[in-house]
């Protein structure tokens, strides 16, 4: 039962990224290009996503625990440090250069373009390299 809902969540995430056009790097880059080919679509995607998630989370957290697990697995760190800011800045640079962030990049693999494959391969290498840095947070 758990797995069916996880699969459903993945299906909806993929459908949402595709319908909204966020799988298309050109659309992301044009959103970021405020003084040029500006395409504001991303704001509508993120805005709607935020409203629904914020309201949904309130209801879920009030319940105290998820339906198919004993607890919520939430990040506990509240530390603002160089690692967070440097990491976010590196990500922003890579995002601005390529127009890809992790979700859409992985999703776009199904369309069979070599650029998606090159990006995801490089992303794997980048992830593994960052893991060699001892301060990297472990996943729960």
């Amino acid at each position: 039962m758990r797995k069916i809902f996880v699969l459903l969540s993945g299906l909806l995430f993929g459908a949402g990224l595709t319908i909204s056009g966020m799988v298309n790097p050109a659309k992301i880059l044009n959103f970021l290009d405020l003084t040029g080919q500006f395409d504001a679509t991303l704001i509508f995607v993120m805005g709607t996503g935020l409203i629904i998630t914020t309201l949904g989370y309130q209801l879920i957290f009030k319940r105290g625990k998820p339906f198919f697990d004993t607890e919520f697995h939430l990040p506990t760190s509240e530390i603002i440090d160089t690692k967070l800011i440097a990491g976010a800045a590196m990500f922003g640079l890579g995002w601005g250069l390529s127009g890809f962030c992790p979700g859409p990049a992985i999703a776009s693999l199904v369309f069979g373009y070599q650029q998606s494959l090159i990006f995801v391969a490089a992303m794997i290498v980048g992830t593994l390299l960052a893991r060699l840095i001892p301060v990297t947070t472990k996943l729960d």
Partner: peptide
């Protein structure tokens, strides 16, 4: 695209 992928992989891992 390669440089972008490396930066996105490393940056999202560090920035969690």
């Amino acid at each position: 695209i390669v440089i972008g992928g490396l930066l996105v992989g490393a940056g999202t891992t560090l920035g969690n």
